[in-house]
C-alpha cells in the first residue's frame, strides 16, 4: 500500500511539473500548445539514454533532458511566432502527430513500440535515491521559478502579450523573444519531467508521449484553472486519482474502466468549458478573457 501511494505521489509530482510548465505557455503567454507530450517524450528518451549509456546520475539526466527539450522547443516557437489561435493549435497538433511517428519508428534511439527497458534506478553522486523526493524537489523548484518569473517584468510582458499582442508590441516589448523564452521554459520543464518519468518507471515507450497524453496534460491545466499557480497541480492530482478511484467502484466492469475514465474526463472538459471556463481554481470574472 505504501509502495502504491509512493508511486502515485511520484507520478502526481511528475505530472504536476508537466501541467505547471504547460500552464506557463497556455495560461500566461496564451500559446495553446497541444504538443506538450512531445517534449515530455524527448526528455524521457534523452534521460533514459543518458542513464543507460553514460551514468545513472539523476541530475545529469535531468539537465540533459531539459536542454534537449529546451533547444528543440524551437520547433514549437517557430509556428507560435508566425500564427495565432486555431492555426497554432493546428500546427502543434501537426508537430505532435509527426513526433509520435518519429518516436515509434526511430528504433535505435527510442526502441520503437517496444520502448527502452532496464533503465537503472536514479543516483546522485553515486548514492541511490528515490524518485519521489527527486520529483518533489524538481516540482518545488519549478513552481518557485514560475512564481518568481511571473511576478516580475517577464511575467507582466507575457500576460500583456496574451491579452493584447499588438499593444504590447506598440509599447516596445520584444514579443518574439518573450514568446520564444516562455515556450523554451515550458518545454525544458517538460523535458525534466520526462527524465524523472523515465527514471521512475524504468521503462519508456511511445504510448506515454502521444496525442492522448498531450490532451490529458492540457485537461489537467484547463480543469485546474489556467493562469493560476496551484490550479494545474489540483488538475493533475484529480485526473491521476481518477483511474484509481474508478477502479474501486464495483458496478463498472473491469474491462471498461479505461473507457469510463476517459469518458469522465472528456465529459468534465466539456461541462467545465460550458459552465466554468476558468477552471476549478481560476477566478471566474477573469476567466472569460483568459480561458
Amino acid at each position: 500500500m505504501i509502495a502504491y501511494l509512493t508511486n502515485l505521489a511520484a507520478l502526481a509530482a511528475i505530472f504536476g511539473i508537466l501541467a505547471a510548465t504547460l500552464n506557463v505557455a497556455v495560461g500566461y503567454a496564451g500559446i495553446f500548445s497541444v504538443a506538450h507530450a512531445v517534449f515530455f517524450g524527448l526528455g524521457a528518451y534523452a534521460g533514459a539514454q543518458i542513464a543507460l549509456v553514460l551514468v545513472p546520475d539523476a541530475l545529469v539526466a535531468m539537465l540533459v533532458a531539459g536542454l534537449v527539450s529546451g533547444v528543440l522547443s524551437l520547433c514549437l516557437a517557430l509556428p507560435a511566432l508566425r500564427v495565432r489561435g486555431e492555426y497554432f493549435v493546428a500546427a502543434s497538433l501537426g508537430l505532435q502527430m509527426m513526433a509520435t511517428t518519429l518516436f515509434s519508428e526511430w528504433k535505435t534511439v527510442t526502441g520503437g513500440i517496444g520502448g527502452l527497458t532496464g533503465i537503472p534506478r536514479p543516483h546522485i553522486f553515486g548514492v541511490e535515491v528515490g524518485t519521489l523526493p527527486l520529483a518533489l524537489a524538481a516540482l518545488g523548484l519549478i513552481l518557485l521559478a514560475t512564481a518568481a518569473l511571473m511576478r516580475g517584468a517577464f511575467g507582466r510582458t507575457l500576460r500583456s502579450i496574451r491579452d493584447a499582442e499588438s499593444a504590447a508590441e506598440a509599447l516596445g516589448k520584444n514579443v518574439a523573444a518573450a514568446k520564444a523564452l516562455a515556450v523554451a521554459f515550458a518545454c525544458a520543464g517538460a523535458g525534466v519531467a520526462g527524465a524523472l518519468f523515465a527514471l521512475h518507471m524504468q521503462f519508456v515507450n511511445v504510448e506515454s508521449f502521444n496525442l492522448d497524453q498531450s490532451v490529458l496534460i492540457m485537461a489537467m491545466v484547463i480543469i485546474g484553472g489556467t493562469g493560476t499557480l496551484l490550479g494545474p497541480l489540483v488538475g493533475a492530482v484529480i485526473l491521476l486519482s481518477l483511474p484509481a478511484g474508478l477502479a474501486f467502484l464495483p458496478f463498472i466492469p473491469a474491462t471498461e474502466v479505461g473507457a469510463v475514465q476517459q469518458m469522465v474526463y472528456g465529459l468534465a472538459m466539456t461541462l467545465l468549458m460550458i459552465f466554468r471556463p476558468a477552471g476549478l481554481v481560476g477566478d471566474l470574472s477573469r476567466g472569460k478573457s483568459t480561458a
Binding site: F32, G85, E86, V89, V215, M218, A219, I222, A259, V260, Q262, M263, Y265, G266, L267, A268, M269, T270, L271, M273, I274, P277, K288, S289, A291
Partner: peptide
Amino acid sequence: HEGSFFTVFVAAFGVGIVVQNL
C-alpha cells in the same frame, strides 16, 4: 458567455473523447 476559440476547442475535444469511448 463570449468564450474564446480555445474554450470551444477544449469542449469539442471532450465531446470527441466521450463519443469515441461510447
